[in-house]
């Protein structure tokens, strides 16, 4: 099937880009242009795969675990590729980010690509707005976690040696803070759009279903991290641990809740 071939091609390009990023750091080689090219190639193949599937099924990648993972790998790759392209100084942080995406790609390839039922409550523009905001949020936090991972790895001799080309910890911390602030805005917008959609679709704007609950816990954790960063003199390492905590909770919310819930919003479909 064409869409499967395109997806495999995309994963191959991503894996080559990620491997290049990791070995580039380990071997102190500068393959950044090649890595960026592979990322863009992977994104092009992945976009084609999603478009073909969308056309075949008549709905976007919003229903099954396969679709949720695929669309999030795509959006996270897009967010990180933009950061990689626009912020050359932080490019070695790809060695931290890409293994996270490798995990998701492995999970994606082990998931059944079978189509799911597109519920009538999903026939709304708010679905796209809600999910779009969520993807920007997670993309921003992914870039932040890459920077924070570098800060934390530089606490070791090996990491200090391998990531010495990157800006100082203070600058990375400030950039991560900016990404987290951007993520906070978009997570808030995601919650607002989700509430508008839920009110129209299910007659309530908030019902503490598993995804709503954990999305709110993520929002509180992000608010805590930003507030702590703005009001206390946190060291870059302490601030980095907060970024990692936010990412872990956000990741579990996006991809862990489907394990305890039969649908993205349990009982609401």
């Amino acid at each position: 099937m064409l869409e499967a071939q395109q997806l495999w091609a995309a994963v191959l390009a991503y894996v080559l880009a990620g491997s290049g990023a990791i070995f580039g750091v380990v071997l102190r080689r500068n393959w950044q242009r090649l890595i960026l090219g592979l990322m863009v190639l992977g994104l092009a193949c992945h976009t084609a795969s999603i478009v073909v599937r969308w056309d075949r099924l008549g709905h976007g990648p919003f229903i099954t675990m396969f679709e949720i993972l695929s669309s999030n790998v795509w959006s996270l790759m897009l967010a990180f590729t933009i950061a990689y392209w626009r912020l050359p100084a932080i490019r070695p942080s790809a060695a931290v980010v890409m293994p996270i995406l490798f995990l998701m790609m492995g999970w994606l390839l082990m998931t059944s690509p079978k189509a799911g039922h597109f519920p009538p409550t999903y026939h709304t523009t708010w679905l796209f707005i809600h999910i779009g905001f969520g993807k920007v949020f997670l993309g921003a936090v992914l870039v932040a976690v890459g920077l924070s991972g570098v800060v934390l790895m530089r606490a070791t001799v090996w990491g200090r040696d391998r990531f010495q080309r990157l800006p100082a910890d203070g600058r990375l911390d400030e950039l991560a803070y900016r990404c987290m602030a951007l993520g906070f805005i978009f997570e808030t917008l995601m919650l607002i759009a989700g509430a508008i959609w839920a009110q129209d679709a299910w007659g309530r704007y908030w019902a503490w279903d598993p995804l709503e609950t954990w999305a709110f816990v993520t929002w509180l954790t992000l608010a805590f991290a930003l507030h702590a960063r703005a009001t206390s003199r946190l060291s870059p390492q302490a601030a980095s641990w907060l970024v990692v905590a936010v990412f872990v909770i956000a990741f579990l919310t996006f991809f862990g809740v489907p394990f305890v819930s039969t649908s993205p919003h349990k009982g609401a479909v």
Partner: peptide, 25 residues
Amino acid sequence: VSATVALGWHFWRKFASQPWDGVEV
């Protein structure tokens, strides 16, 4: 919505003075 716009405005004012690729501590 007002809260989100206000927060966006706050961060914009805070970050706009320096480009992201030249950010200082």
